[in-house]
Write a protein that binds this DNA or RNA. Structure first.
Length: 277
DNA sequence: GTCCAGGCATGCA
DNA sequence: TGCATGCATGGA
């Protein structure tokens, strides 16, 4: 289970005894696009309008300049430290194809990101590569987010983006997705699309609602559901996962039930890094 | 130069 | 309902 210890040391927060957690893999496996590795091996990013620097040393996590309150109300859940990943990994590893993927990339966690940021990010992600997705999102935040501390920017909210034009989005390099982003921002800002309501629905109902959004298809909907709406049963299939699916001609194994999306993250990374054999 | 990337909307059968 | 096609951009 999660028997970690939380200690304040000067202005930092040290979390020790963290099992089944790999920070670098979790932040760099194509689910989040705003974390950058620093020269000391730590990662810096922004979520919930706050800048965070975090460093992992084995089973120790160091949250720089972080209060216990912020850890408990924000980061604990964001990094899924309230979920028993040891148990999940053990369970899905009953499947012989995923077992080496889980072993090789042990500690990848599905983050609990914010719905709006996740939905926008994955609309941008379509027919795009991870490096360029990060570049575009970085431009979006620098240009339209709020500067927190002189160098870090928040992810711009729907209200702010609803005031832009299609060509403003095009200038960010979003290409043909600009019109999708324009309509999405206006829809959420006007209340026509309610992400809170969608989050409260069942997986199937939530997916149905997301699919109504212009520019959101099966793949983007599933990514948003998994990474931003906490539906761990959502199972995104992209070009990489299509290759993986050849190994499951009869559908997904029973041991993935309820955490198909978490299993997917291991399979996706395994396939993408191409380290088999 | 060509191919590809965490796809989707559209038109047509 | 299912399939072919066009679509922006930049790195390999």
């Amino acid at each position: 289970m999660n028997n970690f210890i939380v200690e304040s040391i000067s202005s930092d927060l040290h979390i020790s005894g963290v099992k089944c957690f790999n920070l670098a893999l979790s932040l760099d496996c194509g689910q989040a696009f705003r974390w950058e590795e620093q020269s000391d091996g730590s990662f810096s990013g922004v979520a919930f309008g706050k800048h965070l620097n975090i460093l992992q040393k084995g089973e120790l996590l160091i949250f720089k300049n972080t209060s216990k309150e912020d850890f408990e109300s924000l980061w604990l859940h964001y990094f899924a430290l309230d979920t028993d990943y040891e148990e999940i990994c053990k369970r899905i590893s009953q499947d012989s194809y995923i077992a080496p993927a889980v072993e090789k990339f042990y500690g990848i966690r599905v983050l609990n990101q914010e719905p709006w940021e996740t939905l926008v990010s994955f609309v941008i992600s379509q027919q795009n590569n991870i490096k360029r997705i990060k570049l575009i999102i970085n431009r979006l935040c620098t240009r339209y987010g709020v500067c927190i501390d002189g160098e870090n920017y928040t992810f711009p909210d729907a209200n702010t983006l609803s005031k832009l034009s299609v060509s403003d989005f095009e200038e960010l390099g979003t290409g043909y997705r600009a019109k999708y982003l324009d309509r999405l921002a206006k829809g959420v800002a006007s209340g026509e699309i309610s992400l809170e309501k969608i989050k409260a629905l069942s997986l199937e109902e939530a997916r149905k609602e997301l699919l109504k959004i212009y520019g959101v298809g099966e793949k983007v909907a599933n990514c948003a559901l998994l990474f931003g709406f906490e539906f761990y049963g959502a199972f995104p299939v992209d070009v990489w996962m299509k290759r993986v699916m050849k190994n499951y001609p009869n559908g997904l194994p029973e041991c993935f039930s309820g955490v198909e999306g978490i299993a997917q993250q291991y399979l996706f990374h395994y396939q993408r890094t191409d380290v088999k054999e």
